[in-house]
Every structure is written in structure tokens, then in C-alpha cells.
């Protein structure tokens, strides 16, 4: 005999099931409509926001339907499954070991042969590594020199050479050696300082004619272009990791992770009045490496 409240419970369950079926059907139909709408949007030429939204509705409708189906209509359990121990019986293990050993009575000098095999495989491995060498050029002196040579004109990226009048006091420009505007390692920042406020550091006398001072634009920390200049404080600032370089003091780092000053490019003016380098940087530009001091 069934108790009244059991009948009631069965009734609610039936109602719940009915509701679930309704919502699942709604989910699937919403999805189908969204897919159709997506096809129409696509056919009419596409529109990113609509495409994303309609695709989300098309996917989400099925997701909701299936999710409800699983949680409301499918067998819920909880089901219990036994968990056997993972390891096999000791006898299996011994047999596996024996199978691995192979021959019950080892061949004479087996370990010698195994060593020889090991050596051969190792040698093959080393030989197989050599094609890696084809991937790139030898580092050689690449990191120690740039394209600046004595007398090389400093030009903008567009290739225009500079005279003293092309830069006002307080202004700055990124320059390259003429003919090498694509040479990333040669990018140099030229700042025109007031001649009164700038004094050549020892050993660099005459490197900054008429207040034109040139520093490598590559940060000595991780190689980003030192792209920001604060005129009031005469500081160069690297936007990647916030190293700060003092322009009036040989571009010494004053804050941030950089440990070395930006190398300075010796500048001059040639007979035609154009800005030139009077030599290459005297140390490697850019980030540090193991044997940087072994030029």
C-alpha cells in the first residue's frame, strides 16, 4: 500500500521532470535558432560581436539542455565501484623481471656487449645533435660591434642626415648609421643638451660636440629600446623594466634592474656639417652576456 505522502512525492517528481523536459527543450531550440541566426549573420558579411554572442548562445543552449538532462533525468546514483589494489601479485612481478632478463643463463660477456651497445647509441646521439648547429650563425664578434664606423653619418630611420640645426636644445632623435637604418644593434639616441650643463666624462672628451650626446638606445638590462626621455630631469627611462639612466652623467643607471650605463657613441660633425660618429661604441651594446668583457 502506498502512503499518501509518497504519492505526493511521486507527483512532485513527475512535475519536476515535466519542468526539466520543458527547459531542456527550450535550451535546445534557443541553440538551434542562434545557429540559424549565426549562419545569417555570416552570410550577410559577418560582424564579430554578433558572431561571438550567437555562437555562445548556440553552444550555451546545448550546454544548458544537456546539463539539465544529466542532473534531472538521468540516473543519479550515487554508484559505488570497487577499487582494486594497483599492484599485481608478487609472482607476476617476478615473472616480469625474469621476462625482462630474457635468457635464463646469461651469454658470456653480456655486460661487455651491453656497454659497447651503450657507447654506440651514445655516439649516435651525439652525431644526431649536430644538425642543431645549422640553426644559426656562430655568435663570433657579432655582439661586440655595431655598424657605426668613423665618419658614418647619423641618419633618421627615413635616411635623412642631420645638421646642427635639425635638433633644438632639449630635443632628441633616434639615429642609425647611414645605409644601415635596419640595423637594430646600431640604434642610437641623440639628445641635444645645453652645452653649459654637460661636461664630458673623463676619457670621452670631445664626444659630444655642441651638446649633441649619443647613447645606444638598447637597454643594458634586457635589450628593450630606452624609449622615454624626461626633459626636466634629463633621464632616459626604459618602459619594459623601469631602468633609469642619467643623461648628464654618462647614462649611468640610477634605478631599476640595469647594472651598466648605456654605451656612448663618440659624435662629431663632418666637413659638410653633418652629424657623424667618430668611431664605434667602445663596448658591446645591449644586454649582458657571459664573456662580454672578452672582446
Amino acid at each position: 500500500m502506498t502512503e499518501p505522502n509518497e504519492i505526493e512525492a511521486a507527483g512532485t517528481e513527475r512535475n519536476q521532470q515535466k519542468a526539466a523536459v520543458r527547459w531542456i527543450a527550450i535550451g535546445f531550440s534557443v541553440s538551434a535558432f542562434a545557429s540559424l541566426a549565426l549562419a545569417v549573420v555570416y552570410f550577410l558579411g559577418g560582424q564579430p560581436q554578433l558572431e561571438g554572442t550567437l555562437l555562445a548562445i548556440a553552444l550555451g543552449g546545448i550546454a544548458v539542455g544537456l546539463g539539465l538532462w544529466a542532473s534531472e533525468l538521468l540516473p543519479k546514483g550515487p554508484f559505488v565501484e570497487g577499487r582494486k589494489t594497483l599492484h599485481d601479485a608478487p609472482v607476476d612481478r617476478h615473472e616480469a623481471e625474469a621476462a625482462f632478463e630474457g635468457d635464463p643463463e646469461p651469454v658470456e660477456r653480456r655486460s661487455f656487449l651491453l656497454k659497447m651497445l651503450g657507447a654506440a647509441v651514445a655516439a649516435l646521439g651525439v652525431a644526431a645533435l649536430f644538425p642543431i648547429r645549422s640553426l644559426g650563425v656562430r655568435p663570433g664578434r657579432e655582439l661586440y660591434k655595431t655598424h657605426w664606423t668613423p665618419g658614418a653619418r647619423a641618419v633618421t630611420r627615413a635616411g635623412t642626415p642631420l645638421t646642427v640645426n635639425d635638433l633644438d636644445v632639449g630635443g632628441l632623435l633616434t639615429v642609425f648609421p647611414e645605409g644601415h637604418v635596419d640595423a637594430a644593434d646600431s640604434q642610437t639616441i641623440v639628445i641635444r643638451l645645453d652645452e653649459g650643463e654637460y661636461e664630458d666624462p673623463p676619457g670621452r672628451e670631445g664626444w659630444a660636440p655642441q651638446g649633441f650626446v649619443g647613447y645606444s638606445k638598447i637597454c643594458t638590462h634586457a635589450g628593450c629600446p630606452v624609449g622615454l626621455y624626461q626633459q626636466e630631469t634629463r633621464e632616459l627611462f626604459c618602459p619594459c623594466h623601469q631602468s633609469v639612466f642619467k643623461v648628464l652623467e654618462g647614462a649611468e643607471p640610477t634605478a631599476g634592474p640595469a647594472t651598466r650605463p648605456l654605451p656612448q657613441l663618440p659624435l662629431g660633425f663632418d666637413d659638410d656639417g653633418y652629424l657623424v660618429a667618430t668611431g664605434d661604441f667602445t663596448e658591446p651594446v645591449g644586454p649582458g652576456f657571459w664573456d662580454r668583457d672578452h672582446d
Binding site: L59, A63, A70, L74, P75, F79, G82, R83
Partner: peptide
């Protein structure tokens, strides 16, 4: 020594596919 929950088929499979579609959505 046991695992308690839903069976792969059909409940867990439906749930899991639903999750995939939800993540995609």
C-alpha cells in the same frame, strides 16, 4: 577501496559534454 559517484554513461558523459559546450560558450 571504492569510488562513489556517477557512471560514465550516460550521466557523467552528458555532464562532461555540457561542460565542454559551456566552456566553449
Amino acid at each position: 577501496t571504492n569510488v562513489v559517484g556517477s557512471k560514465l554513461w550516460p550521466t557523467y558523459a552528458a555532464k562532461s559534454v555540457s561542460l565542454f559546450l559551456a566552456v566553449f560558450a
